[in-house]
Simulated scan of single mutants.
Amino acid sequence: MKALGETAVLITGGSRGIGSAVAERFASVGMKVIIHYLQAHEAANEVARRCLQYGGDVLTVTADLRSRDQLLRMQEKLELHGFTPDILVNNAGVAHYGLFTDVTEEEWDDNMAINLKGMFMCTQLFAPHMISQKYGRIINVSSVWGLTGASCEVMYSTAKGGVNAFTKALAKELAPSGVTVNAVAPGVVETDMIKHLNAEERALLQSDIPAGRLASPEEIASLVYFLALPESSYITGQVISPNGGWQT
C-alpha cells in the first residue's frame, strides 16, 4: 500500500456535481488527484484550484470516454506525469428523460457508450496496473434507478443496471488480485441532473423521501472515499444506495 501522497485517484466526469465533490474529498487527505472532463475546461480547472488548496498534486485531463484512442492518449499522459491511478472512480454519465417509445437508436447508442462502454474501457485500461501491484480500488457511480428502474428513464435505468452487473462480476474476477470493485447508487442528489425540475416537482420529490431532503454531492463523496480506504478491503461486489430511505 502506497503512502497517501503517492496514491493517485482518477475521477471521470470530475468537473462538477458528485465528481468534483469526490475530487475534493480525496485531495483533502493529500492524494494525487486526476480530474477528467470532456469539454468543461474552465470548470475542471476551478475544481483543480480548490483541490490544490489542500497542498497535494492535481492534474486535469480531457478525453471522450466513447473513444479508445482518446483514452489511450489520456493514459499515456498520466503515465508521463507519474499519475497512474491506484483508485478509479467511474463517475461520468448522462441522464435521459422521455418516453421509451420516443427514444431513437442514436440516443440509445450514445447513452450506452457514455454510461456503460466508457466505464468498461476506462476500467480495462487501468485495472492491469492495480492487478500487477496487488492493490486497487474501482468505484462505479451508478443510480438507484439501476436497482429499481424508473418510468420515462428506461434507457438510463438500463445503463445503470449494466453498471451494477459489471461491478458484481468484475469484483469476483479481481478479488484474488487485491482489487475491490464496488458501486455507489445514489438517490436524488443536488446536481445539474435535476435542474429540469421546477419548485413544485422538487417539493413533491422531497416529500417522498423519508429523510425529507435531497442528498448533497459531499455525502456521496464520503461513501466513495470510504470504499477506497485500505480498511475497506473486504467490501467488494457491492452496490450501495445512499438514498435517504427512499428506495429499499
Rank of each mutant, 00 (worst) to 15 (best):
G161A: 15
L78V: 14
K117N: 14
T180F: 02
F83Q: 11
C122A: 14
M121L: 15
V181F: 01
N164L: 03
K134N: 14
I139V: 10
H81T: 12
T104L: 11
D102P: 00
L78Q: 04
V141C: 08
N182T: 11
W108K: 03
L116M: 12
H81F: 02
G98L: 09
L99H: 10
A150E: 15
S151L: 14
L174W: 10
M112R: 11
V94Q: 13
E106I: 05
N111V: 15
F120A: 08
G98E: 00
N140V: 13
A113H: 09
T167K: 12
E173W: 02
E153C: 09
L88K: 06
G136I: 06
G178A: 03
V144P: 07
E173K: 10
A113I: 08
A127Y: 06
I131W: 05
G93F: 11
V163E: 04
N164C: 05
A95L: 04
Y135P: 03
T180N: 04
K160W: 02
I139C: 02
D110V: 01
M119F: 05
E153M: 14
K160S: 04
Y97I: 12
N115C: 00
N111F: 03
G118N: 10
F100V: 13
N91P: 01
H96N: 08
A95E: 10
G149A: 03
G146D: 10
G178Y: 06
Q133F: 11
T148M: 08
L125W: 12
A127S: 14
V94Y: 07
M121S: 10
Y135N: 13
A150P: 01
V141F: 03
S151A: 15
